[in-house]
């Protein structure tokens, strides 16, 4: 019994120590990006790797999610004779929920895991150590551009996801199922509010982007420098990011729309 309490206490202490360490880490990385031409160059390179290379998966998933939403929405709405509302349904679902959430989950799987593995491997091959010994702070040089790239690209990816999703809904709803295009757009326009829906959705994706990038770079930086350690860190990135995104989504939704 005593043993159990000791172990519980020890893991609790270890856990809070990690949280504290990641907080200090975030602070240094967040303010570590210099606005020098070199810093911008590093940032642009990471924006490309984290953002542009994630575009394919975001666009393809967005189209399919929009198409599925329109199909499901139509089959329910048609029973009530209100299939013209399919446009507003697709748009609201995407902008408020699925856009930020699914884009964040995809981001964690595509870009987050890559960031963790890359940083973990740099640590395992002593590249971070050698940078430190050259008097270059790896938090500024390696971590900060990656963190900021995640922060900047996540909201953009979520917006693209929603926009492409609406297009997918249009394809299925209007082109295939024959909803009148005028009412598809008109209903959407009258019911989607910029501040209430779109802005709140963007706020969500900003929060998710911060959390996912933070988790990804920290797990990489804090990983055991072995092949097993990197695999554990990569798994942790995806699991922790997904859980935090879903949990935070509930909290944010409760505050924004509850």
């Amino acid at each position: 019994m005593i043993d159990l309490i000791i172990r519980l206490g020890r893991s609790g202490l270890g856990y809070s120590e990690t949280v504290g360490r990641s907080g200090i880490f975030l602070f240094h990385a967040f303010f570590g990006l210099g606005l020098s031409p070199q810093g911008l160059k590093l940032l642009i390179h990471q924006l490309y790797k984290v953002g542009v290379l994630s575009l394919v998966i975001i666009v393809v998933s967005g189209v399919f999610i929009g198409m599925v939403l329109a199909l499901q929405g139509y089959s329910i709405l048609v029973d009530y004779g209100s299939e013209q509302a399919v446009g507003q349904m697709v748009a609201l679902t995407l902008v408020r929920e699925l856009g930020p959430v699914v884009a964040a989950l995809l981001f964690a799987g595509r870009a987050g895991s890559a960031l963790t593995a890359e940083i973990g491997l740099m640590k395992a091959t002593e590249q971070l150590s050698s940078m430190e010994m050259m008097g270059v702070d790896p938090l500024k040089r390696v971590i900060a551009p990656r963190l900021w790239a995640g922060l900047i690209t996540m909201p953009l990816l979520a917006v693209i996801f929603s926009a492409v999703g609406v297009f997918g809904g249009l394809l299925v709803g209007v082109e295939w199922l024959g909803v009148y295009e005028g009412s598809f757009w008109a209903n959407m326009q009258s019911s989607v509010d910029f501040k209430e829906d779109i802005l709140n959705g963007i706020i969500k994706s900003v929060v998710f982007g911060a959390v996912c990038s933070w988790i990804a770079v920290f797990q990489g930086y804090d990983s055991e420098p072995t092949s097993e350690g990197i695999s554990i860190a990569t798994t942790k990135t995806v699991v922790y990011s997904s859980l935090s995104v879903l949990g935070l989504d509930f909290l944010l939704t409760a505050v924004m729309f509850g």
Partner: peptide, 16 residues
């Protein structure tokens, strides 16, 4: 970090 500019370390793996 300033002091490290005056020293160099050669790592076992090279760490390029």
């Amino acid at each position: 970090f300033d002091a490290r500019k005056k020293m160099g370390m050669l790592f076992q793996s090279g760490a390029l």
